Amino acid sequence: MTADTQPAPMVYVIDDDPSVRAALEDLLASVGLAATLFGSTRAFLDSPLADAPACLVLDVRMPGQSGMEFHRLLVERGNPLPVVFITGHGDIAMSVRAMKAGAIEFLAKPFDNQALLDAIHRGIAVNETHRAQNRRQDALKRRYDALSDGEKAVMARVVRGLLNKQIAGELGVSEITVKVRRRQVMVKMGATSLPELVRLSDALAIAT
């Protein structure tokens, strides 16, 4: 896979009913979506996930841990996997709770196949955006890590708006040294202006 090629999306399905899993697998295959199916949340947690954009189709009511409880666990763990709930026993209050918790959709069985596919595609798009943001943050962190300690010290003061003379005074170095380090910071961080460097610094603070 090259930097310009993204892996094919994956749909995970957790439902304790084998007939529902089989029907969903056929539906997803009919539109070219790969699926991995599980009969329980434990089976899902015990399996490695593909490094690909994904969405989780999750049954609300299952033996042991419910889908709602499992979704809350994923959120608490910071797992960004978008969730589409399906249920044969849903109600409006449950639907509202699920959507407030960040679910993409809440569909009652028997649901319209197109409505489910539309929700899954929305979930995959959300996850693709999240993955792209993570890639940008990782690249930014690598650029920052490539700075020397002296360059990081200069960058921290440049984005605060200090002049070269002030920075030199704080660090106990010459203005020439500050100018050289400042130029290296701009090159290594890929910034073409001070406002852009400030923006990158803000993004770096969020990433770390």
Rank of each mutant, 00 (worst) to 15 (best):
A34D: 15
P53M: 03
Q65C: 14
F38I: 13
L45H: 00
L45W: 00
A52H: 06
A50N: 07
L56H: 04
R61E: 15
P53L: 03
A35Y: 06
L33K: 05
L37C: 15
G67T: 07
T41G: 02
G32R: 01
F70T: 01
F38C: 14
L58C: 10
R42M: 11
D46W: 09
L33A: 13
V60N: 00
S40I: 05
T41N: 03
V57A: 02
L45C: 06
F44Y: 14
P53H: 00
R61M: 15
G64T: 07
P48W: 06
G64Q: 06
V31W: 04
G64I: 07
T36C: 10
S40W: 06
M68V: 14
D46L: 14
A35F: 07
F38A: 12
L45A: 09
L37M: 15
G64F: 07
V31E: 09
L37W: 05
F70P: 01
G67H: 02
G67W: 01
D59K: 04
C55A: 14
A54T: 08
V57C: 03
T41K: 00
A43P: 10
V31R: 03
P48K: 04
S66N: 12
A43I: 12
L56N: 06
A35L: 10
D51E: 15
T41P: 01
A43G: 14
H71D: 01
V57Y: 00
D59R: 01
V57P: 00
F38M: 11
L33N: 08
L45S: 09
V60Q: 02
M68A: 13
G32F: 06
C55N: 03
M62E: 09
E69L: 05
C55R: 00
P63K: 04
S66A: 12
A35Q: 03
F70A: 02
S66G: 15
L49M: 15
A43S: 15
L49T: 15
L37A: 14
A43M: 12
Q65D: 10
D46I: 11
F70H: 03
Q65G: 05
P63V: 08
R42K: 11
A54G: 13
H71L: 04
G32Y: 10
L33S: 09
Q65H: 10
H71Y: 04
M68E: 13
T41A: 12
G64Y: 05
L45T: 06
D51M: 12
A52W: 05
D46T: 11
M62C: 14
R61C: 13
G67Q: 02
G67C: 07
A52S: 14
G67E: 05
P53A: 10
P53D: 06
L49R: 15
P63I: 11
S66K: 02
C55M: 03
R42N: 10
P53V: 03
H71V: 02
L33G: 07
A52Y: 04
L56P: 01
T41Q: 01
A52E: 10
S47E: 12
G64K: 03
L49C: 13
A52I: 10
V31G: 02
A35W: 06
T36F: 04
S47M: 07
D59G: 10
A54F: 06
